[in-house]
Nucleic acid binder design. Structure first.
Length: 460
RNA sequence: GAUUGCGUAGCUCAGUCGGUAGAGCAGCGGCCUUUUAAGCCGUAGGUCCUGGGUUCAAGUCCCAGCGCAAUCACCA
């Protein structure tokens, strides 16, 4: 046995058998009477004290990261618990978990650039799904009143701290519910999942709760997108970081409902000629802010419809400041915010509001400035849906490569009658980020997307 | 896609003004004999990301490329 022990290296796996004993110092141990090497480590482990800190190596060699950094492994245990808690919540409400195709013949369910692939035998172009939405709603037509799917979606877009080309999406559909029911359900779901996680993980990772900048234990804010825009322009300077905007004092709900008036107002308010640069910069909070509004002007100039304009106004005026605008009564934490009633032009699958058909019964949920969920009352009028698809085709002909395809079978499904329903989508990775205090989506993905590395060895 | 920063031993990192490539840990060889990362002595270990350029001389300065990160843009 001795000579074999000489061959032991850090990282080897060994099988030891013998009676369990307790040492003088009280530790558990095995009094070994047999010993075998069962796995050999050739590579030396990282520094015991520092672990593996090089971020690139951590992602590329996640196996090393996981065995040398307990905090990292804990995030993935938490992720598993979070997904299980999401399932438990929905299962408890009688939802049916289903699996729908990942290979889609058409682009639909979200506005995004897809990955393309090809089926040889069928000789057809296929897209990796950007969302399961349209298949799940076909199941509503089929009589499954409560369905959900947790799975991967793929979007051929940039990589950032919040975006990975493949990510995990939860979508559920609840018949006879609307977007307001979904807000109640969403709050309940988030609290349920967080409680389940906390019960198992608080002792090991108290910081995930103690260091949170946001609250989940109070009612979430609910604000109409247009009200949020107006309110933002009235609150400049009321809190740190709420800089003045070119729109302060100039926007009203009436103006936001007036296509011509709004377009003229935008053109006038964002006309910031270089000659007045210094003065404007000072008025808006600095040169960076001036540049910000110049970029905003470009975005607004690209808009083709009134609804797009309102949506972009929300994006540039409100969204970056959400954590500053909506806070708990004591001001210490940000509130989750349901931003509601998106313009129908931006929501091709959502039901129009009964009293104001220019907007939809939709919400997006933001927590600490990050979008985590998107939900709406589903559009179940086949004729309206057909018009929306045609609108998407218009966008495509104008060069929008994120527009959806016309899905004739989906229209046919709606013609068979889809119950009114609320539909909900959640970025699971982003939820894990929030609950586990992780700043980058890569920290909640075991193997985040990376450029290929030149690996020495065989297999070329 | 743009900007900024980073890339040195298996790991964590130094490296000054451009002048012989360094430390700790891990490894290996001894010694010691019991711990809350690290007992002692010794030893070995390098494509300084890659390729050009400047220079008598480049880890260091310049250019290009590759990779990673952050921010922005696009989006979820």
């Amino acid at each position: 046995m001795r000579p074999q022990l000489e061959l032991l290296d850090l990282g080897d796996h060994v099988a030891v058998h013998g009676p369990m004993i307790r040492t003088r110092t009280g530790d558990g141990a095995v009094r070994a009477d047999g010993y075998r090497h069962v796995g050999k480590a050739i590579m030396p482990p990282p520094d015991k004290w520092h672990g593996l800190t090089d971020v690139e190596k951590r992602y590329r060699e996640r196996y090393v990261d996981l065995f040398s950094n307990p905090d990292v492994a804990r995030v993935f245990h938490a992720r598993s618990k979070i997904v299980r808690a999401l399932r438990a919540f929905l299962d408890g409400l009688g939802f049916l978990e289903v699996e729908t195709p990942l290979l889609h013949p058409l682009r639909g369910g979200a506005t995004a650039k897809p990955f393309e692939t090809h089926h040889n035998e069928l000789d057809m172009k296929l897209y990796l799904r950007i969302a399961p939405e349209l298949y799940l709603k076909r199941l509503l037509v089929g009589g499954f009143d409560r369905v959900y799917e947790i799975g991967r979606a793929f979007r051929n877009e940039g990589v950032s701290t919040r975006h990975n080309p493949e990510f995990t999406i939860l979508e559920f559909y609840l018949a006879y519910a609307n977007h307001e029911d979904l807000m109640d359900l969403t709050e309940a779901m988030f609290r349920s999942v967080d409680a389940a996680l906390r019960a198992e993980m608080y002792a090991r990772s108290p910081g995930w709760w103690d260091d949170r900048a946001f609250a989940l234990d109070v009612p979430f804010a609910r604000v109409d997108m247009r009200d949020a825009i107006v309110e933002r322009t009235q609150r400049s300077g009321s809190a740190p970081g709420l800089f003045p905007t070119p729109f302060d004092g100039a926007l009203t709900r009436a103006l936001l409902a007036d296509p011509q008036g709004l377009e003229q107002a935008i053109t006038r308010l964002l006309d910031l000629p270089p000659a007045r640069k210094d003065e404007d910069a000072a008025r808006l909070g600095g040169p960076e802010r001036l540049q910000y509004w110049r970029d905003a002007r470009k975005l607004l100039a690209k808009c083709h419809h009134h609804g797009e304009r309102v949506f972009v106004l929300y994006e540039v005026l409100v969204e970056p400041d959400l954590p500053r605008l909506y806070r708990t009564a004591d001001g210490l934490r940000s509130l989750p915010v349901f931003v509601t009633h998106h313009p129908f032009e931006m929501s091709p699958l959502a039901r129009k509001d009964d009293v104001d058909p220019t907007v939809t019964q939709r919400y997006e949920l933001f927590i600490e400035g990050r979008e985590v969920a998107n939900a709406f009352s589903e559009l179940n009028d086949p004729d309206d849906q057909e018009q929306r698809f045609l609108g998407q085709l218009d966008r495509r002909t104008r060069g929008d490569d994120e527009a959806m395809d016309f899905d004739a079978d989906y229209i046919r499904a709606l013609r068979h009658g889809m119950p009114p329903a609320g539909g909900f989508g959640l970025g699971v990775d982003r939820l894990v980020m929030l609950l586990c205090g992780q700043p980058s989506i890569r920290d909640v993905l075991l193997f985040p997307a990376m450029r290929p590395e030149a690996v020495s060895g065989h297999g070329e």
